[in-house]
Design a protein around this nucleic acid. Structure first.
Lengths: 349, 349
DNA sequence: TGACATAAAGTTAACGGTAACGCAACGCTC
DNA sequence: GAGCGTTGCGTTACCGTTAACTTTATGTCA
């Protein structure tokens, strides 16, 4: 019971410290953790006691290097602003917890060069799996991920070439639904407004879906009021003023995000345009505030929580050798105060 | 140039694969990465070429095990909902990038048992530093962090016992400022409303600050309308109805967060109470929508971006051996439409 | 030209675990 | 009581990289 086996302070205790203290081999201590039923209960208790006393924390770098799994899940997102993906990460992280998988986070901020750098960086930790936003990546990213051999779950979007597995929603369909909703509510001259980064393919797909719905209805072409910068409420204000200055006939605005829509509503109020009678607005994303602005914002609610959860399930399944698969998650269109109610006369009568 | 040195597919290339291909020792390849000026430029080029061709990705598990640093920064937050800390993480992650430090994320969801588990888990990766929300932790967490010897930056809050270093704001002062603002605008019977988890010491400090400002002004005691659950707009609605049913004399509501305040504004509208004339509301957090609800929400804006940035700076400084320190970040009170304007007659005479 | 510093590589030994294998002690069967 | 499977533990090798030494080639100066 002397302190001879203690490490000089500075370096944390190792399995060997425990082994010496208990008087067994290193491997027995390792087994007590990894395959407890192969170690006598009495010995197991002594080992546990020693670990507790020494405040032993296993070194998973060593474990990952030696063993086959590393217990790291790389998560690559394109943005952390405005909860866009925070709740996906939240659900994902929490679901991975019970399998003892740790999230390593990277944020590309919609920069494809960063994406390459960050994916390479994530892979250098030999993750058990990688979850990444989007299905459209720089060629080098796809190459790195494919050749790494780790399971890859692409999130948020689906369709096109999937590297391995995917969990997401149909963005083109969502954009089409936004436009169809506006058309059904009697708006005829529509615009698509918001942030549209060069590499935000989801936004492009929604815009495309909206444009085709407009075309299918035989209405004038969808007007685009977009800019390559982050979606903020102030951007919505600016774009609305620009849009209505040049296209005063617009009577419906399809927004690329709720935060942008907040600014749109404010700009319309300033210009004296009545929402929803004079002009309609629909958002995307169902921000926590969408139901609390005036008027309340009609929007599309993607099931972010479900995406995170399903991604976690899929990661575990893939690690356990199950086959790749693609899950499509539903979204819901929430009709609220910023678009006119359905006219019974137009609808059922 | 045969394929003899290639690894059988399945296991990714290692330094040794590169070494064999170029015809040098493993160490030379390592040096080409780590201390390039000790390797002949010509040889360096060959090595770089081989790495590129084989799609070499270094194994940082091995690097971390062997070397002294691990390049991982553990980040422990209490919530990911509603952007509360997402923008801190965003700023932090992006600032750490240039020092090649990788964020490993954990979310306690305000559960102290989870906090112990997660901190232990983070430490098992032998991080170069740990950034964690709050200065009040379970004893075991403080013990683990202290005995681990890694630099620890406590974020968001300051004051009390700091483990190592801290970057945060004065929450008691912010709560006091919320109350002082309400008092200055002529509200006299104040309530503090919102989510208050048992372990959210920042919320407690703000409530305490508000209560002492009310007491100092000689006004009736601050009424508390709080619940131990996540802050959502719906919670604000419910609590407002409960509060005004039992305390109809209340004329000012200090909210613990903006998202809760959104619900408060809605409930007040439903009850026919005029904001800001009849009753005032102030939020906390400056949510992206705060300036876009009706009326626009007076609130306190913490500089989350600065906190993330400063935390990154501090982490790098501590890794480089600089002394621990505590940085206090400013907040700003934004007076908007949900509180009455200052009455000149009361103010300047 | 020999002594000596310097540059550029190679050798060797960790880092802290895990996994495969080996071996003794024990109980069971016939 | 010999044969054999099982339980419980120790031995040994290895994961991929870095750091500390050592060695060899090259240049410099008295």
């Amino acid at each position: 019971m002397s302190g001879a086996e203690e490490r000089e302070k500075g370096s944390p205790p190792t399995l060997a410290s425990i082994a010496v203290r208990v008087g067994v081999s290193v491997n027995t201590v390792s087994r007590a953790l990894r395959a407890p039923n192969t170690v006598r209960p009495e010995l197991r208790r002594q080992i546990a006691k020693a670990m507790d006393e020494l405040n032993y924390v296993p070194n998973r770098l060593a474990g990952g290097l030696s063993g086959t799994r590393s217990d790291i899940v790389g998560v690559v997102v394109t943005s952390l602003y405005y909860s866009e993906f925070a709740s996906i990460i939240d659900a994902l992280q929490s679901a991975l917890l019970k399998d003892n998988l740790q999230v390593m986070l990277a944020n590309t901020r919609y920069d494809p060069d960063q994406e390459v750098t960050l994916v390479r960086s994530i892979l250098s930790w030999r993750p058990a799996a990688v979850a990444i936003i989007g299905v459209d990546h720089p060629a080098k990213v796809s190459e790195l991920l494919t050749s790494s051999g780790v399971p890859v779950i692409e999130m948020w979007d689906v369709g096109g070439d999937i590297i391995d597995s995917a969990v997401g929603m149909d963005h083109e369909g969502a954009g089409k639904a936004q436009a169809d909703h506006m058309i059904a509510r009697g708006y005829r001259r529509l615009a698509f407004l918001g942030s549209m980064r060069e590499n935000d393919m989801r936004a492009r797909k929604r815009a495309h879906g909206a444009a085709s719905a407009v075309a299918a209805a035989g209405l004038p072409d969808l007007v685009h009021a977009v800019r390559q910068e982050a979606g903020r409420p102030a951007l919505g204000e600016e774009l609305t003023h620009e849009l209505l200055d040049s296209n005063p006939q617009i009577d419906g605005i399809i927004c690329n995000s709720d935060v942008v829509a907040f600014g749109v509503l404010k700009a319309l109020h300033e210009r004296g345009r009545k929402v929803p009678d004079d002009i309609g607005v629909i958002g995307f994303g169902d921000s926590e505030a969408a139901n609390y602005v005036t008027p309340s914002l009609s929007t599309v609610r993607p099931d972010r929580h479900r995406i995170g959860e399903l991604t976690a399930e899929l990661i575990v399944a893939r690690i356990n050798g199950e086959e790749p698969r693609t899950n499509v998650v539903d979204w819901e269109l929430l009709a609220r105060g910023s678009t006119r109610p359905l006219l019974k006369s137009l609808n059922g009568g």
